[in-house]
């Protein structure tokens, strides 16, 4: 059986059932870019932002972690996140990608490519409520 570290969420395991904003159910490995875009269009609170990977470094805390620096949205705000190296991000037009795709596939059985500088990931921000 697959052993998932406690800080790696269960919904990334292959076969997990994901509900889109219109109620449709899909497996996590079958999600497409359009699924996220259409779900965000339906959402009253959330919108999709583009987050471009600017830098990927090993963590000072633990070799199991990486620090990924993103440039977020049209304002290019700099945001760094510390994640397990197998943590998957969804890259526009490409799909699931992580710092260590071999580990992602090993632990989660989730098909995954290598996350690289310049990749544009899907992220969420709050819609402007006016």
């Amino acid at each position: 059986s697959t052993v998932v570290p406690p800080s790696l969420p269960p919904y990334f395991i292959k076969g997990s059932i994901i509900q889109l904003a219109d109620g449709e159910l899909k497996r996590v490995e079958d999600l497409k870019t359009e699924d996220f875009i259409q779900s965000a269009e339906i959402s009253s609170e959330l919108k999709i932002d583009s987050s471009t990977v600017e830098r990927i470094e090993g963590s000072h805390t633990s070799p199991n972690f990486a620090v990924v620096q993103f440039s977020v949205g049209e304002h290019r705000a700099q945001v760094s996140v510390e994640v397990l190296v197998e943590y998957p991000f969804f890259v526009f037009g490409q799909g699931w990608s992580s710092c260590c795709p071999d580990r992602t596939t090993q632990l989660l059985e989730l098909p995954c490519t290598k996350l690289s500088v310049g990749d544009v990931c899907i992220s969420l921000t709050l819609k402007n409520l006016r």
Binding site: P9, P10, Y11, F12, S16, I17, I18, Q19, L20, A21, L25, V28, L31, D35, F36, S39, S43, L46, I48, D49, S51, F70, V72, G73, H75, A77, V79, V81, F89, F90, C121, I122, S123, L124, T125, L126
Partner: peptide
């Protein structure tokens, strides 16, 4: 079988707006 909402899969990155 648990069902997870789509937005739980996406990191929430709120940019700080400086304008």
């Amino acid at each position: 079988v648990p069902v997870f909402p789509w937005h739980s899969l996406v990191p929430f990155l709120a940019p700080t707006q400086s304008d």
